[in-house]
Design a protein around this nucleic acid. Structure first.
Lengths: 375, 375
DNA sequence: ATGAAAGCGCTAACAC
DNA sequence: GTGTTAGCGCTTTCAT
């Protein structure tokens, strides 16, 4: 790090220029063009009541002067900032960073800018409210990523404030996204003929998307039991330890007595990776000997060619942003919360259950099916 | 997706309220407190010339009214927006998202907000300049992530505009970050006694940090040769195909004739993962049979307990942001570019070369060393 | 098609 | 310690 004595790249002349804040104002442009500021304003924003030649001249001059309207002044005059706040609990988790990317794209496409607020812990701290409040006067609307990012009270506060907002990923009264995702994954495997499954999921109390412990899942599992399908639930620490822990859990599972599952659902791609590594070590072929379904399935899942229940959070966030903008421009209210509907992305890590699957894995490949180059 | 007919969670009453934009202004607060707006302004911003009881009263009233100063109005009055723009080429790559996180933290800690600009392709398109220009009037300073994010002309333009900015990750005249990182990694392995190395790196022309093809690296490699150390360079597609490709490359390498390297440097954690998977399949123990060094080494590398050359980009970005703020508040100029100094993070994937290491791997473990639970 | 003028909500001198 | 006042740079009627 050498910020302190970092190389100053600008020549003294430019430095001078900056020191005097020589940013041209709309008046400068108006004067240079010999018109009023009102005309310049219309011309630059592409509003109608300007003669074509006049407009051209103004645009040229503005360009030459390097003029751009001050966001503050425009904002004060119009009452709108042309920016929306995006609050996310994480930037490292692919689902969230993808969502932020999606939102950014949607917003920038409409000439809105995105103010990022990173709220790692969903606490009801006064600090948090302060941060939200700061945002409130800075942006026209709020896109909240993650159902648990804001507490109920904060959501209420938002609603009271009358600020337009959308919460992406909320599992509300009607839909439980997590359970739905888990169900989707399990259904896929059952359809492939698997009757002995393991489910690697988060510890009870784990936050957000990695924790499919909702009653929807319990419905699903009890339904399974009546069909004679075994589903062993294995709780894994999520987050940084997910890979290590799922490796360990898989080893234990495989070394243990009793029948081995022919398919595993993992609540995150990291867990799936752990299973993949350990399975490679055991000499198992994926998906011939063992089917694996991931969740979240963005970058890592894609690279690993993992069949996964994906969130397409980028698209969802983009849509959310679009709704927000539509509401802003159309004056209508969209203050609402959207539920997450997961999609199943079938890739290379699941296959129909081998007919004569032994308890220990290590079975001949189904005829006609190429072994994958998985470990 | 159901934004269109999404559940509106606010009751009609609140909806009414919003419709009338009932945001209190500073005058409302002043009136309610029986003071002037100037006093309110001072009180709220914590400026000195306000009596303690007055301040308390004002703060209370402001709180009760849900007042927060309009950023636009304040910005127009002060000439500063209290926000800085962060431009990043990516949010998915851990190094960048970590950097954004770091910057956000630093900025929010100082009550600045962060406006995000995502510029995936470093093109000289007019669109890009437009976007940059938009930002210019919206933020007080710019933090540019990535050496290649902006083209030379755009940097020049920035400099001319006099906007405060810092570029993080630039390998300038003096330091070549990539080569330095590669050198660091290689040196580590050589010190562990390895004399036969492979280097998985990006294709020529690959962007930014994953492409250590600078002349610094060539210096390093030629130096190695004179020491009798073999370094086989293997070019791998980076990005989405990195894992798959490095698996393939490793298989080929291992199946091929001749001596096998005892250590591998990977230009990204994804490549390292590919190697890890394939090594597990070959029955190799890491690091006993094979040492692996990753690069970028944030989340994935950490989870895999990979020895890696890390960028600590979060810290770097935070420092950059701090410098920017210091400059903004102190009026001094910091327009400069910072170079990246990589650090070696020694974790579990490298070990001293086994004494009687066979060409094929599969060697007894060094006495006294626990085999890792790697695949 | 263009211009004059009245703010938008806040801050910062300056006066008291 | 507190109030008065003059803008900040733009948008937006309303005239012309």
């Amino acid at each position: 790090m050498d910020e302190g004595q970092g190389v100053a790249l600008i020549p003294p002349a430019a430095r001078q220029a900056r020191a005097h804040h020589p940013r041209p104002s709309i008046e400068d442009v108006a004067a240079a063009a010999g018109v009023s500021t009102a005309t310049v304003s219309r011309a630059i924003r592409g509003l109608p009541r300007v003669a074509q030649p006049t407009r051209m001249r103004i645009l040229e001059i503005a360009q030459a002067l390097g003029y751009a309207a001050s966001a503050s002044a425009a904002g004060l005059a119009t009452g709108r900032t042309r920016s929306v706040g995006v609050v996310t609990p994480s930037l490292r988790q692919p689902a969230y960073s993808a969502a932020v990317e999606g939102a950014e794209r949607a917003l920038r496409g409409r000439d809105y800018s995105l103010v990022l607020l990173h709220l790692p812990h969903r606490s009801a701290s006064p600090q948090l409210s302060t941060d939200l409040n700061m945002l409130r006067r800075r942006v026209d609307a709020l896109l909240v990523l993650g159902a648990d990012t804001l507490g109920k009270d904060q959501i209420k506060q938002l609603q009271r404030s009358g600020m337009q907002h959308i919460v992406i990923g909320l599992h509300g009264e009607h839909v439980d996204g997590e359970a739905e995702a888990a169900t989707t994954a399990i259904r896929h495997l059952v359809q492939l003929g698997h009757t002995d499954l393991a489910f690697f999921l988060g510890e009870p109390g784990a936050p957000s998307w990695a924790n499919p412990q909702a009653r929807g899942l319990e419905h699903c599992t009890s339904a399974l039991k009546t069909e004679g399908i075994k589903l062993k639930e294995i709780r894994i620490e999520i987050g940084a330890g997910a890979i290590r822990n799922s490796r360990r859990a898989f080893s234990r599972l495989w070394a243990g007595p009793g029948s081995k599952p022919t398919a595993i659902v993992c609540a995150s791609d990291e867990m799936a990776l752990g299973v993949l590594l350990e399975a490679a070590r055991e000499g198992l072929s994926i998906p011939e000997d063992l089917s694996i379904v991931g969740m979240d399935g963005q970058d890592l899942g894609e690279s690993l060619e993992l069949t996964a229940v994906i969130q397409n959070s980028a698209l969802r966030a983009a849509r959310g942003a679009q709704s927000l903008l539509a509401a802003l421009e159309g004056e209508r209210s969209v203050t609402y919360s959207a539920a997450w509907s997961p999609e199943l992305m079938i890739r290379q890590s699941t296959a129909r259950r081998a007919r004569n699957h032994s308890a220990a894995g290590m079975v001949e490949t189904e005829p006609g099916r190429q072994p994958r180059d998985y470990g």
